[in-house]
Nucleic acid binder design. Structure first.
Lengths: 117, 117
DNA sequence: CGTTAATGATACGGGTCCGTAACGATCGGG
DNA sequence: CCCGATCGTTACGGACCCGTATCATTAACG
């Protein structure tokens, strides 16, 4: 069941949601951080630094730094994997889940407003 | 004719497109720059620094700097308004139009791939 | 053991962006 | 004319992020 959307609608949706994010000061998250956050909350755990780096096609320091800043915002947490203490398992948080949910609602709401364009 | 999309679909769409942008190295554009670019290409001209700043709810230097960097990328151009030489009119470019079009196609394509989630 | 491999974190130099404040150029009204 | 208002830009200090290279810790294996 494909989701049908026309190019002009896609652009208006993209613009409106980005405008919302900017206006609400929630543009703290870069494109990379957004991709990381949504991967953590949409894909099945466990998530590791290396795994995320591979999925995004970026280097490990990028993930480490993104987790640092998102951790400061309370969106994710890190915990050492006790079975293999080299690994770090990235965990979800309530605040992170709420932020993701809010983003989803934003997109849904803006999509609803977009008529035939 | 509202565009119907469920929260889980919205999130998968948002993630996939952001993943594409990151992987293709097109994440040069921040959320602010994206909002500015799409406003220029979707809303009726003429566009001014002050007008864009008001629409985005940011200060004028933010717009000036964004136009600087997007200008370097060839996505927009600036021209002095000869009728009131205080104003600067932001103009579209072929490269910018292509970039916007590419983004639209990306969103449309990813939306099509998203089934019932 | 000791050696190799793998993981995530850190150091460094460079670039970009931010917000506030100030600036030069231009217009308009008295 | 001139003075205030408006426009876009620039200066400054600080924060963040990048990519590369390197590090400490831990695991795996001979």
């Amino acid at each position: 069941m494909p989701l049908e959307i026309r190019p002009s609608q896609a652009l208006r949706l993209w613009r409106q949601v980005h405008l919302d994010l900017v206006r609400d000061g929630e543009s703290d998250l870069s494109a990379r951080q957004t991709a990381i956050l949504l991967t953590i909350y949409l894909e099945l755990p466990p998530h590791t630094v290396r795994g995320l780096a591979a999925q995004l096609g970026v280097t490990k320091p990028v993930i480490t730094r993104a987790l640092d800043s998102m951790g400061k915002l309370g969106l994710v947490t890190r915990r050492r994997d006790e079975t293999d203490r080299r690994n770090v398992v990235i965990q979800r948080t309530v605040a992170g889940a709420l932020a993701v949910e809010r983003l989803a609602d934003r997109v849904v709401e803006r999509a609803r407003e977009i008529g035939a364009g």
